[in-house]
Simulated assay, not measured.
Amino acid sequence: MVQAQDASEEAGTEASGGDEAAEDAQAMMTDESAIDDQAAREFFTSGSNLYSLGRYHDAALQFQQAYDLSERPALLYNIYLAHRDASEHAEAAVALRLYLEATPDADNHAALTVRLENLERGLAEQEASRVSAATAAEEAVRQEQAERERREAEERALAEDDKNIIPWIIAASGGAVMAVGVVTGIIALGLASSLDENCEPAVDGVRFCPSDPSLELENKQSALSTFAVMTDIFLIGGGVIAAVGLTWGLVRLGGAEDDEDAPTVSAMCGPTGCGASMRMGF
Rank of each mutant, 00 (worst) to 15 (best):
I241D: 00
E152I: 15
D19N: 02
T184F: 01
V265M: 13
T113K: 03
A159T: 14
A202V: 08
R84Q: 15
D259V: 06
M1A: 15
S222C: 07
N198C: 05
G185C: 00
P263K: 05
S129W: 05
G17A: 11
D161E: 11
Q38P: 10
T247I: 09
S193F: 00
I35C: 10
F44C: 06
S225F: 02
G281F: 00
V131Y: 02
T231C: 04
T247N: 04
L224T: 04
I165C: 02
G54Q: 09
N108M: 02
I241W: 02
D58V: 01
A40H: 00
L81S: 06
A39I: 15
L224F: 04
E218C: 03
S129C: 06
D31I: 15
R156E: 10
G205I: 05
V244A: 07
Y80N: 07
G181A: 01
R252M: 06
A22D: 10
E120C: 08
F63Y: 05
Y77K: 07
G254D: 03
V131Q: 07
A60Y: 00
L76E: 12
E138W: 04
A179T: 08
Q126R: 13
A15Y: 00
N49Q: 05
S16K: 11
D232S: 10
L189M: 13
S211A: 13
R72M: 15
R115F: 01
I166S: 09
Q64S: 14
T113C: 06
N118K: 08
A243L: 04
A128M: 09
Y67Q: 07
V180W: 03
E120G: 09
A86R: 03
E71W: 00
L235C: 05
G249T: 14
D162Y: 15
R84S: 14
S87M: 13
A21I: 12
A153D: 12
S266D: 03
A171Q: 00
S87F: 02
E260M: 07
G54N: 05
S222H: 13
S46T: 10
T264M: 11
Q126F: 07
A171L: 10
S70Y: 11
E20D: 14
W168N: 08
S222T: 13
V203Q: 11
D37N: 15
A171P: 02
P201G: 13
F43H: 07
S211F: 13
M29F: 13
R148P: 14
Q143P: 05
L76N: 06
L76R: 08
A134Y: 06
F44N: 08
R97C: 03
R252S: 00
G239I: 01
V229Q: 03
D6S: 14
A82D: 10
S222D: 13
E42L: 12
